[in-house]
């Protein structure tokens, strides 16, 4: 126990200042001011891998580390779409995940924000559209913010989430 406490004390706080929203990432609608103000204090995210190679997932997981400290921004991941305000979707949407993604979207309450993460989610990526894949996320559900990159840096993903949350500049 003593070793654990000593470790916590010696490392201290390493969290960094979160990025500011970037309007260039917005591809869809912007939130109403009043809704943004409410969500801004407690945002719940559901992540859906719709066909990713698992690269983007590693960077999404990094958002929880002490440097990016996602929860310090009042944002957390939840286990059910019914609890979520925002869906974070990765991958080219593949045929075998199409129904699951649509059901997750249907189960999410309004405002149903959607952030597509990664090159494949934004454009279809290396796979594009093929007999087994439907390409970009917006081919299947409406997308509000798209964060390109293979995989995108955690700061960019966080910036995308914060952009989805902010009213249009």
């Amino acid at each position: 126990m003593l070793k654990t406490l000593r470790k916590i004390a010696s490392i201290g706080l390493v969290s960094e200042t979160p990025p500011v929203p970037d309007e260039l990432l917005r591809v869809g609608r912007a939130l109403d001011d009043r809704i943004a103000a409410v969500l801004g204090r407690a945002l719940c995210i559901r992540h859906v891998d719709a066909g990713s190679c698992n690269g983007c997932e590693l960077e999404i997981q990094a958002l929880g580390n002490p440097y990016y400290n996602l929860e310090g921004c009042n944002i957390r991941f939840v286990a059910s779409p019914r609890h979520a305000d925002l869906l974070l979707v990765t991958g080219p949407v593949v045929k075998n995940m199409e129904a699951a993604l649509q059901r997750v979207y249907a189960a999410t309450p309004a405002p149903k924000l959607v952030v597509a993460v990664g090159e494949c989610g934004c454009t279809g990526g290396a796979l594009g559209e093929c007999p087994a894949a439907l390409g970009r996320v917006s081919n299947v559900i409406p997308v509000d913010v798209a964060v390109p990159g293979c995989p995108p840096h955690p700061v960019r993903i966080l910036q995308g989430i914060l952009t989805a949350l902010s009213p249009a500049a």
Binding site: G51, S52, A100, A133
Partner: peptide, 25 residues
């Protein structure tokens, strides 16, 4: 099989000197 994206079919026909990009994914 949920994230089946047809990778093997995608490889066929690609320039062989560029296949490493898809292999990485």
């Amino acid at each position: 099989g949920y994230v089946h994206k047809g990778l093997e079919q995608r490889f066929s026909g690609l320039p062989i000197l560029q296949g490493h990009r898809l292999a990485a994914r």
